[in-house]
Write a protein that binds this DNA or RNA. Structure first.
Length: 843
RNA sequence: GCGGGCGUGGCGGAACUGGUAGACGCGCUGGAUUUAGGUUCCAGUGGCGCAAGUCGUGGGGGUUCAAGUCCCUCCGCCCGCACCA
């Protein structure tokens, strides 16, 4: 018997699938649709294990749903604009376009080697002018709909990448990509009005039932809705200060007003107050590096200003500049109520300000505030006409009063900021706008789209190459025809990925979206990718689809009905005695210790960590595929570890998977050879047992795949393989069981499945075969094993017919020798029988 | 600080609404075949015990005939957000 030759087999079946065009979407128009999508990759050069895991899961779902009769859309594309291409261009002098497309060629070949069931006819890259021209069109649509605007803004400037960053791209004061300390800078920039949809984006989360709660919570926090009252304090001596509060009920407990150091009034006051200026400068410094250390300490500066309490003209409050007040939230000014806000309390204690409790919990009306503010529910005290009211009622009353006097109004405030989309980068989608010295900002005419990137980009000196490329930059004004300049900023690449999934519905459409095709295919039924996109990509996409709906491009509500976030791929790390990282390929394990290959140099084994170049613990997928084949690496990715958790790649595990591939092949081959040796005798117990095992496996695997529990599906398949191995059933039964096994592994190890299918004498392709159906009669067993306990301790088991009567079970249980021994002659006080489950005898 | 998750053999992990804890895989031990090794096959593999048994799901307590699962409490780890008024 020949061994299974994965390499030979995999190439043949990949060719067969392609020839039969089995993965084209739209082949079963009358069938229900199913859209499976994995987050498309950035073409960095080669695929890595993270891609392998992601695309394997998606492919299993696609093949499984196809077998179940769905018309499946499973496309692939390339998130092809972005910084690495520019860096490569700078370092190696290549054209970023050439570099990108070469990478795409390489990676596409690698993905094909994995045997993915992708409809390649829908492939595109976001850097194709054929794609970005539509994006420019959408930009103009959004512009016309008032969802794009230009604003002079204090932006986050990344000095290393030489670009601005959106707030969410700044992590701990550093650029999400470069890690450089972010600086503040004023620039005129393009924004998308995502805040327009804040409420809708928030409410929409409730309907996303097939999203991880974790992601929904993250988005909810990110949007950060709070309802409250915005109102004005009159300054003694003229002017006013506007504050926002979610606790207007505590207004009689106010003891100060605090401004953000970045508040315009702070800056104004600082001009005449050098000490305040120093204080503000200090606060700015605290904003970055020492943040963590300084967070605890609340500090402020008394400006000497006084404001009048809005509900009592004879009451004045001091105005501070305080380091814990954020300019970016609310109005950049607050009133402090120390008794009911921890920050305000810390502040008040430090500066000796009054602390007057105004809300008391039931049963503790004489509430005293110590070191902790009281933030719970209760009734108002010390608050004149509010006394006795519940918190909510008091909020309403204060809000109504303040609104009545015109001092303020109820508002909803969001943490979410508008999306800054301008990037000072040459390798991105050009923003189709023109700056005319006479007409101002003018959109490019639609017939002139796409605004193409120049063929050559020269990376000399600082700044954006598009800015110094006059053939790109200089143009005519679409309005007056005079000399004008193009916008040289390009779109944030998150714009590219905010609608690509909808373009897949019809990549040939002359308009950005074919609304009929979008209606057919979207929403994506199952989207799969990394948790790192929980906020940025997923929120932007949800916004963008809503913006497109506003512009009449689609009726779609949410883009992704189901979301799954898979874990990372990890590997043990190794270091030499001098601390240098050592790659796994250079490591040899002997008796649990690691040595440098072929030498006596012992290495230090470190913890398993996410595969990364810096720790040199990367395993190249192509090496594994070359060694064992795609089915083995796919099987590994699905086995053992639940898909949402981090998985550890191990050599032993990979070998185990490879052995299983061979084992199935052997089972199938032996199944054929036994033709004469075991004559068919269909109705023996062994036959029935094997049929039952098969149908149990079908039921279990189906259920597990539906729920994306790949690791459990794998275990079920092992179980079935074990049962087939051990079975004494006749040839016909064995063959039937093997066919079932082959169909069940089809989505996971598609090449092996085809090869076995053919060897079992089947025609056609597993890729086109229907998913097996479990016969409920066979899944349900006629005999069950009951546990027998005495005082809750297991003393034995019983084999009984399913559905046996309680007294029958009780009698049989009492008859067990082990039970009699445990009873020690005592009479049962009580016997609990749960039919088909357990008998518990209590003495 | 707030929010979420997790803690089960040597390892990855199973265990549906409380009902035989450790399925399945890796590793390991012994044996058989082949052999240069790997492969393959058989048996075993939570701890203690010759056995009957007994202990065992991070620690402690509780509810229950019965707890990995429910409740209280403590400990540890991971992730997210972080002065959001």
């Amino acid at each position: 018997m020949a061994r299974y030759n994965a390499k030979d087999s995999e190439i043949r079946w990949q060719a067969a699938w392609e020839a039969a065009n089995v993965f084209a979407a739209g082949r079963a128009q009358e069938a229900p649709k199913y859209y499976v999508l994995e987050m498309f990759p950035y073409p960095s050069g080669r695929i890595h294990m993270g891609h392998v895991r992601n695309y394997t899961m998606g492919d299993v779902i696609a093949r499984f749903r196809r077998a179940q009769g769905f018309d499946v859309l499973h496309p692939m594309g390339w998130d092809a604009f972005g910084l690495p291409a520019e860096n490569a261009a700078r370092e190696k002098g290549v054209n970023p376009r050439d570099w990108t497309y070469q990478n795409i060629t390489t990676m596409k070949a690698q993905l094909k080697q994995m045997g993915l069931s992708i409809d390649w006819s829908r492939e595109f890259a976001t850097c194709d002018p054929g794609y970005y021209r539509h994006q420019q069109e959408l930009f103009l649509d959004l512009y016309e709909a008032g969802l794009v605007y230009r604003a002079e803004a204090d932006v986050n400037w990344d000095p290393v990448d030489g670009t601005v960053l959106a707030n969410e791209q700044v992590i701990d004061g550093r650029g999400w990509r470069s890690g450089a300390l972010v600086e503040r800078k004023k620039l005129s920039q393009w924004f998308f009005r995502i805040t327009e949809f804040a409420e809708e984006l928030l409410n929409g989360l409730d309907e996303l039932e097939r999203w991880p709660d974790k992601v929904r919570v993250m988005q909810r926090n990110w949007i950060g809705r709070s309802a409250g009252l915005k109102f004005r304090f009159a300054r003694v001596g003229g002017g006013q200060i506007e504050v926002f509060s979610t606790r207007p009920d505590t207004l009689f407990g106010a003891s100060f007003v605090a401004l953000s150091p970045e508040h315009p009034l702070s800056a104004e006051l600082a001009q005449k107050d050098p000490a305040l200026e120093r204080f503000i400068a200090e606060c700015r410094r605290l904003g970055t590096a020492e943040e963590a250390i300084e967070t605890a300490e609340k500090r402020g500066y008394d400006t000497g200003l006084k404001v009048v309490h809005p509900l009592d003209p004879n009451w004045t409050l001091p105005v501070y500049v305080a380091n814990f007040v954020l300019m970016g939230y609310g109005t950049g000014a607050i009133f402090g109520c120390p008794a009911h806000d921890q920050r305000d309390l810390d502040f008040a204690r430090k500066y000796g300000l009054p602390v007057l409790p105004v809300v008391a919990p039931a049963g503790n009306e004489a509430l005293e505030i110590g070191a902790e503010a009281y933030v719970g529910p209760g009734r108002l005290i010390n608050s004149r006409f509010l006394n006795g009211l519940e918190v909510e009622a008091a909020k309403d009353k204060v809000a109504a009063l303040i609104e009545g006097t015109g001092q303020g109004e109820r508002t909803v405030n969001y943490r979410l900021r508008d999306w800054l989309v301008s990037r000072q980068r040459p390798w991105g989608c050009p923003i189709p706008m023109i700056k005319c010295p006479r007409c101002g900002i003018v959109p490019e005419k639609r017939e002139n789209l796409p605004v193409r990137l120049p063929e050559e980009l020269t990376f000399k000196g600082a700044g954006n190459p598009l800015d110094s490329d006059l053939s790109f930059k200089l143009t005519r004004c679409p309005k007056c025809g005079g000399d004008a300049e193009r916008e040289t900023d390009t779109c944030d690449t998150f714009v590219d990925s905010s609608w690509y999934f909808a373009r897949f519905a019809d990549v040939t459409a002359k308009t950005p979206l074919n609304s009929a095709a979008v209606a057919r295919w979207l929403p994506v039924d199952q989207y799969i990718g990394g948790i790192e996109h929980a906020i940025l990509h997923l929120l932007y996409s949800r916004f963008f689809i809503r913006a497109l709906r506003t512009c009449g491009h689609t009726q779609l509500g949410e883009p992704f009905a189901g979301l799954f976030t898979q874990g990372m791929v990890c590997h043990e790390t190794y270091r030499s005695q001098d601390g240098a990282w050592v790659e796994p390929v250079e490591v040899e394990k002997r008796e649990g210790k690691a040595f440098r290959k072929g030498s006596a140099e012992e290495l230090v084994i470190g913890p398993s960590e996410k595969m990364s170049k810096s720790k040199k613990n990367v395993i190249a997928p192509e090496v594994i595929i070359d060694l064992f084949g795609a089915d083995t690496i796919r099987w590994f990715m699905l086995s053992d570890t639940p898909p949402e958790r981090d998985i550890e790649w191990t050599e032993e595990g990979a070998e185990g998977c490879w052995r299983f591939v061979q084992r199935i092949w052997r089972l199938v081959s032996e199944g054929l050879n036994n033709d004469e040796a075991t004559p068919p005798h269909p109705e023996t117990d062994a036959d029935l047992a094997l049929a039952r095992a098969s149908h149990r496996a079908i039921a279990a695997v189906t259920e597990d795949l539906e729920a994306l529990r790949f690791n459990r599906a794998v275990a079920q398949i092992y179980t079935l393989a074990n049962e087939i191995s051990a079975s004494k059933a006749g040839h016909t039964s064995r063959r039937q069981a093997l066919l079932t096994l082959v169909l069940l592994i089809g989505p996971m190890m598609p090449h092996l499945a085809e090869e076995c299918w053919r060897h079992l004498g089947q025609t056609g392709l597993v890729a086109e075969a229907p998913w097996p159906k479990a016969d409920p009669e066979l899944v349900r067993s006629s005999e069950v094993t009951l546990a027998v306990q005495v005082n809750g301790k297991l003393r034995g088991t019983l084999e009984l017919a399913k559905g046996a009567a309680k007294d029958e079970a009780e009698k049989a249980a009492l008859a067990l020798e082990a039970v009699q021994r445990a009873l020690e002659g005592k009479a049962p006080r009580r016997v609990i029988v749960v039919p088909d489950r357990i008998v518990n005898i209590v003495v």
